[in-house]
């Protein structure tokens, strides 16, 4: 059984379909990726899976139908999203942002929360240096680390990442992708949405290509990486 099994997801915005009948699955313990050019509907798809925007279709998570649950209830069940816009609490400190990431475990003791915080700091040592700094003053790369760290504080079962490399310098992108690889070893399943196609395909087991709101190619990541059509999708057909 898949951890996440989304079937026939459609998102309409002002009568225009941004996502049309997309089905996608993530197995327990794997990294799956969705690649595609700008405007293909990747962000809308994630927002729909997270319950942030209305959508049609069925979302099964761990065998339960969560299609009608609000975002916070999906978070309670172990789904987490690091959105493209990061959505940090800009005027709170890094530490406070991380602490709120564990909001779904608010019944637990402070000691356990501190442990989680230490783990996040171990994963992103830069954040430890910045612990008392306001999130709004961080650089782009640090913001992405904090957004990921905050999501991981909730100990999610599935982490969905929307364009984690967006606008970041190559060295930082490399670090972020290395971290994603270590997450798999820790048993966190990941759904990675990227326009950085090469990195995403290298990292994931399965991948889907999203174009104009629909999945046009899907399968083994290694096979897709070798597919000529993926290159064309990004740089246009040769003349």
């Amino acid at each position: 059984m898949s951890l996440l099994d989304a079937q026939n997801i459609s998102v309409a915005y002002r009568g225009v379909r941004a996502v049309e009948g997309v089905s996608i699955a993530v197995q327990q313990g794997e990294i799956a990726s969705v690649i595609g050019p700008n405007g293909a509907g990747k962000t809308s798809l994630l927002a729909a899976l997270m319950g942030l925007i209305p959508s049609q279709g069925r979302v099964m998570f761990d065998g339960h139908d969560i299609s009608h649950l609000p975002t916070e209830a999906r978070v309670e069940r172990g789904l987490a999203l690091v959105p493209e816009s990061r959505d940090l609490f800009a005027t709170m400190t890094v530490r406070e942002n991380l602490m709120l990431g564990a909001y779904r475990h608010r019944g637990e003791g402070a000691a356990k929360r501190r442990n989680g915080m230490e783990e996040a700091f171990d994963l992103f040592p830069r954040l430890r240096e910045r612990a008392e700094q306001l999130a709004g003053t961080l650089s782009g790369g640090e913001r992405q680390m904090l957004a990921m760290g905050r999501a991981l504080m909730g100990r999610p079962r599935l982490l969905m990442l929307d364009e984690p490399s967006l606008g970041l310098a190559p060295l930082i992108v490399r670090d972020i992708f290395r971290t994603i690889a270590t997450l798999r070893e820790k048993g966190v399943s990941v759904l990675l949405v990227e326009q950085n196609a090469r990195a995403a395909l290298a990292l994931s087991t399965h991948a889907s290509v999203l174009e104009n709101g629909s999945v046009t190619l899907a399968g083994d990541s290694a096979a897709l990486a070798a597919d000529q059509r993926v290159t064309e999708l990004y740089l246009g057909a040769a003349h």
């Binding site: 490399s165 190559p170 992108v173 490399r174 992708f177 290395r178 990227e194 326009q195 950085n196 196609a197 090469r198 990195a199 995403a200 290298a202 990292l203 290159t231 990004y234 740089l235 246009g236």
Partner: peptide, 15 residues
């Protein structure tokens, strides 16, 4: 479209 920097920017480097 043959410029390596452009290809890198669009398809991304392999991490």
């Amino acid at each position: 479209r043959r410029n390596p920097a452009v290809i890198e920017a669009y398809l991304g480097g392999v991490a």
